[in-house]
Every structure is written in structure tokens, then in C-alpha cells.
């Protein structure tokens, strides 16, 4: 059973890669599982000419623009929640608010988000994608980060305080460096969510030059080049490639980032 499913998972991946290296005419003629006799990179050239570098850049901007503020904000909130240890009513309320945010499917609120973005005159911009993505990322990030900050020995905070360090300084000088693995984990999780996100780009942008990669993929397949299967698959491979490179470099980090907060 395990072996069977492993095969089911691996065969399509193998198929995408070899097919993306075939010419369109070869694709129809050869055995789909046979590697191409004369591999070609023409499909990749075509995809790159179809503005994919721009879409790549868009995705990168949205991912970075979301991850940095959401993780920093979440870290500050998590720090405050842990350090007040339930003594502050305002912070307790914020904590339960974020916990509630975890249970609610936030995608269900995209229509008011759409209205809000229009009213703010941000429609069809990358900022329109970044702002809601930050908000959606906060609940889980706060939860995971506060669990890690809680692990920092209390004595360390105490000695910082005795040295007269402000909370601000303790936050960035002590808590942040000590929980760096958790920060990386949460950042990876959020980055991947945004990188692969589809619904927000679909409803909040419309110009081709504002497309992020997943949307560009769908448009490419639905467009005039859609019949060129090897080219479509080359576009799929190109969007996966950067993450795949990260995967080979930091596999353990990436996998623990994916299950951020769900297992340990």
C-alpha cells in the first residue's frame, strides 16, 4: 500500500520533468514514460519569453513583503503575550482573538476584503495581496512563536531586567536570537503559503503584469499556448524549481516549517 502510493506520487513528477524536455511534436509520438531521445530546452525558453521572470519577481515581492512584517509583528505580539503571563486583560483578549482566528476559515471573508481593497484604492496592486496575507498569517505565527518564547528560561529575562534593559531591548537582544529556529520555521511556512496562494491574486488583481506564479500558470494553460503540453509542464517545473532548490539545501528546516505548530 505504501509502495503503491509512493509510485502514484512519484510517477506524475517524473512525467512532468521528462515531458517538459520534449518537443511538442515528439510529445504526441513517443511513449509518455520514455525520456526524450533529444532533450530540448525550447519549452523553457518559450515560458521565459512569456514574462515568467516578471511573475516570479511578483511572487517574490509578495512573499517577502508578507513574511517580514507578519513574522516581526507576530513575534512582538507573542513576546508581549508570554511576558505578561496572563496578567494583562488586554493581552489575554488579543490571545483569544488570535486563537479564534485559527478556527475560522478566513477565506470565507474574501468578499469584504475585496471591497476594502477597492475602497483603499489598492485594487490591482501587489500591496493589495500583501496586506490581507499579513493578517491571515498572524494567528498561527503568534501561536507557534509564543510556544517557543515560553521555553526561554525565566532567569534570562530576569537578569536582563536587573541589568535595566527595556522590554524592547530584551525582545530583540534576548528572545529573538534565542528563538531563531522557530522564527525561520514560521517564516518558511508563511512564505510557502503566500508563494502558492491563488485565491487572493485571483480576486484582487486583474492586469497580467500583476500576476503571481500560480495565477500565471493557470492563465498560461488557459491561453493560446495551453495546447502545448510540454510548454505548460515546463512552466510548472519553473515555478517549482526555486522551492525545490531550497528543499535540497534545507530539507529539514523546510519540512519542519511546513508542519509549523501542528507537530513537533
Amino acid at each position: 500500500m505504501s509502495w503503491l502510493w509512493l509510485a502514484v506520487v512519484l510517477i506524475p513528477i517524473y512525467w512532468i520533468v521528462i515531458t517538459s524536455l520534449k518537443t511538442q511534436s515528439n510529445y504526441y509520438l513517443t511513449n509518455p514514460f520514455a525520456p526524450p531521445a533529444d532533450p530540448t530546452l525550447d519549452n523553457y525558453r518559450l515560458v521565459i519569453e512569456m514574462d515568467f521572470p516578471l511573475y516570479f519577481l511578483n511572487s517574490l515581492i509578495v512573499a517577502i513583503g508578507t513574511v517580514i512584517p507578519s513574522v516581526l509583528f507576530s513575534f512582538m505580539a507573542a513576546y508581549a503575550i508570554v511576558r505578561s503571563s496572563g496578567a494583562n486583560r488586554f493581552l489575554r483578549g488579543i490571545n483569544s482573538l488570535f486563537l479564534m482566528g485559527l478556527a475560522i476559515p478566513l477565506q470565507a471573508t474574501v468578499i469584504p476584503v475585496y471591497l476594502l481593497i477597492i475602497k483603499m484604492q489598492l485594487y490591482d496592486s501587489l500591496t493589495a495581496l500583501i496586506l490581507p496575507s499579513i493578517a491571515f498569517a498572524i494567528p498561527l505565527s503568534v501561536l507557534v512563536l509564543s510556544n517557543f518564547i515560553r521555553d526561554v528560561p525565566k532567569e534570562l529575562f530576569e537578569s536582563m531586567r536587573l541589568d535595566g534593559a527595556s522590554e524592547w531591548k530584551t525582545l530583540w537582544g534576548l528572545a529573538f536570537p534565542l528563538t531563531r529556529p522557530a522564527v525561520v520555521t514560521v517564516s518558511i511556512y508563511n512564505a510557502l503559503q503566500v508563494w502558492n496562494g491563488f485565491l487572493l491574486p485571483l480576486i484582487l488583481t486583474q492586469s497580467p503584469d500583476k500576476r503571481t506564479l500560480p495565477l500565471a500558470l493557470a492563465a498560461f494553460q488557459g491561453g493560446p499556448y495551453g495546447v502545448n503540453v510540454p510548454a505548460v509542464l515546463a512552466s510548472v517545473v519553473l515555478t517549482i524549481l526555486p522551492i525545490l532548490i531550497l528543499y535540497t539545501v534545507g530539507r529539514r528546516q523546510l519540512l519542519s516549517g511546513l508542519t509549523a505548530g501542528f507537530s513537533k
Binding site: 505580539a77 503575550i81 511576558r83 494567528p139 522590554e167
Partner: peptide, 23 residues
């Protein structure tokens, strides 16, 4: 401390909480 939680609260309130009420 409460001030530190403010940026996250504002971001979450504007693009998650208000839309939740808005829907």
C-alpha cells in the same frame, strides 16, 4: 507590553476581523 501587540492586532483587525463582521 500591550503596545508591542498593537501592530499585529491592527493588521489582523483591519484585514481579518473587519471582513469577518463585513461578511
Amino acid at each position: 507590553l500591550p503596545w508591542l501587540a498593537l501592530p499585529a492586532l491592527v493588521a489582523f483587525a483591519v484585514f481579518a476581523l473587519i471582513p469577518l463582521i463585513g461578511v
